[in-house]
Amino acid sequence: MNREEEYLRNAKDAQEWADRAATEEDRRSWLKIAQGWLNLFTRWTAEQRGPKPAGSADPDA
């Protein structure tokens, strides 16, 4: 399993725990963990693509 797959799997697992949480506080905590994994995934994949050339259009903007 590569790093990207690991980050996404961990985010999915945290989401599933959030779905089964006994309290709203636990649910929010699990969702925060899931979001953290997604942020790591986003940063890692952006770093792997390398810097964008100056003046290039951002298709996500």
Rank of each mutant, 00 (worst) to 15 (best):
M1D: 11
M1N: 07
N2C: 07
R3D: 14
R3C: 00
R3N: 08
E4D: 12
E4Y: 10
E4Q: 13
E6M: 10
Y7V: 05
Y7Q: 02
L8K: 12
R9V: 02
R9W: 06
R9N: 09
N10P: 07
A11Q: 03
K12H: 11
K12W: 06
D13K: 00
D13W: 09
A14H: 01
A14E: 07
Q15V: 09
E16H: 11
W17Y: 14
D19I: 01
R20E: 15
R20G: 10
A21V: 03
A21R: 00
A21P: 03
A21Y: 03
A22D: 15
A22K: 14
T23M: 12
T23E: 14
E24G: 05
E24N: 10
E24Q: 13
E25H: 09
R27F: 09
R28D: 15
S29H: 13
S29G: 14
S29Q: 15
W30K: 07
L31N: 11
L31W: 06
I33K: 14
A34K: 05
A34S: 15
A34R: 03
Q35R: 14
Q35S: 15
Q35K: 12
G36L: 08
G36I: 01
G36P: 00
W37G: 00
L38Y: 06
N39S: 12
N39H: 03
N39P: 08
L40D: 09
F41K: 05
T42K: 03
T42R: 04
R43L: 11
W44P: 00
W44I: 02
T45Q: 14
T45C: 00
T45E: 13
T45N: 13
T45M: 07
A46G: 00
E47M: 10
E47D: 15
Q48H: 02
Q48F: 05
Q48A: 10
R49M: 11
G50K: 02
G50M: 06
P51S: 08
P51K: 11
P51I: 00
K52Y: 02
P53V: 10
P53N: 00
P53W: 04
A54E: 14
A54P: 03
A54Y: 13
G55S: 08
G55Q: 00
G55N: 03
S56C: 02
S56G: 01
S56V: 09
A57W: 04
A57Y: 10
D58Q: 08
D58H: 02
P59Q: 05
P59Y: 05
A61D: 15
A61R: 14
A61W: 02
